Amino acid sequence: MRIVRDLSELTAPVDGAVVTIGNFDGVHLGHREIFRRVVERARELQGTAVVLTFVPHPLKVLDPERAPRLLNTYAEKERLIAASCIDLMVALPFDAELAALPAALFVEEILMRKIGVAHLIVGYDYAFGRHREGDVAFLQRKGAELGFAVEVLSPVVSGGESYSSTRIRRLLAAGDVAGVVPLLGRHFTLEGRVIHGANRGQKLGFPTANLLTEKEILPRPGVYAVRVRQDEKFFDGVMNIGFNPTFGVERISLEVHLLDFSGDLYGQDLRVYFVERLRGEKVFASGEELSLAIRRDIERARTLLADTRIVEYREYLDCGFSPPGRDA
């Protein structure tokens, strides 16, 4: 997938551009259904499957207090969109100037002149531009005027409720990491670099890797059964997200204990796949009581993880060429 981060990189319109527009935070299965249709239509037209998105999320510029914590880092979003068989991703810098651009000029100058849209695919409730004036009816009128088709997709529904990033955030806030898998089409993950911690786990007999991550949203504080990827190796693990109340820590920490692992992880990058929440945080009367609880967590995690297959992403898109790589 080619990534364009500045419109000046598009020196000519894209051949047969089939375009969808959105933030696509989470790249959940609802988003992937849109991408599937974009790819399908692009192959029919022998054109180019294009995703137009914005960096940063528009609300981070327009109303930072209301801006959502993002489910993916921008690097993760790029990787997941690439895994969806998209040919070109335009990551348009969002600033006050773009926010003030009337919807008509956005369509004429960016969609038509720069990208060369031939076919636009949007969700039934999509709207963009100043005061959200660029709704579906507006796009259909502009398409008829300028000569591009507009296809409107119905909502993708699971369990009587539409797929949405808000729904996934709600589940993560409740610690329901198992419940997000059917919506994301994969296990929720975070990536982080191993940094030096207080070595409390080592002293208790359960050495942990302390992670520094760019992830904006985390599951509810507590203890989780996880799988951890180090390079191409996978390890079962137990992860604690929280404030270590037994030790009176005020800053949230991410600590993961890899089962049956020995070695030095400092400075390395790990990817953590969340499988199930084991328990909430608790204040223990002593280190011995905490050690006993950790042993119970490990035993339960071993049982849960023994029968768990990690879903890295849903391999169901027919791209018309070789399937995407699994690193998503």
Score class of each variant (00 low, 15 high):
Ile3Glu: 11
Val4Ile: 15
Pro13Ala: 11
Ile21Lys: 07
Asn23Glu: 09
Gly26Pro: 10
Gly30Lys: 07
Arg36Gln: 11
Ala42Ile: 06
Arg43Cys: 07
Glu44Trp: 06
Gln46Lys: 14
Gly47Ser: 10
Pro58His: 09
Asp63Ala: 15
Leu71Asn: 04
Lys77Arg: 14
Glu78Pro: 00
Ala82Arg: 14
Ser84Tyr: 05
Val90Arg: 01
Ala91Gly: 05
Leu98Ile: 10
Ala99Gly: 07
Leu101Tyr: 00
Leu105Val: 06
Ala118Met: 09
Leu120Tyr: 06
Val122His: 03
Gly134Gln: 07
Ala137Lys: 13
Gly143Phe: 07
Gly143Lys: 01
Glu151His: 12
Ser154Cys: 05
Gly160Asp: 12
Ser162Arg: 15
Tyr163Lys: 02
Ser165Gly: 11
Ser165Asn: 09
Thr166Ile: 06
Arg167Gln: 10
Arg169Thr: 11
Leu171Met: 15
Leu172Arg: 12
Val177Leu: 05
Val181Lys: 14
Leu183Ile: 11
Leu183Gln: 09
Leu184Met: 12
Arg186Asn: 07
Arg193Tyr: 02
Asn199Val: 00
Arg200Asn: 07
Phe206Thr: 00
Thr208Val: 04
Glu214Asp: 15
Lys215Val: 01
Pro219Gly: 08
Gly222Gln: 05
Tyr224Leu: 05
Ala225Leu: 09
Ala225His: 06
Arg227Asn: 08
Arg229Lys: 15
Lys233Phe: 08
Asn244Trp: 01
Glu250Gly: 02
Glu250Leu: 11
Arg251Phe: 02
Ser253Trp: 00
Val256Trp: 02
His257Tyr: 14
Asp260Gly: 04
Ser262Asn: 12
Gly263Lys: 13
Gly263Ala: 13
Phe274Thr: 06
Arg279Asp: 04
Glu281Cys: 05
Lys282Ser: 08
Val283Ser: 07
Ala285Asn: 02
Gly287Phe: 00
Glu288Arg: 06
Ile294Glu: 02
Ile294Cys: 03
Arg295His: 09
Ala328Tyr: 08
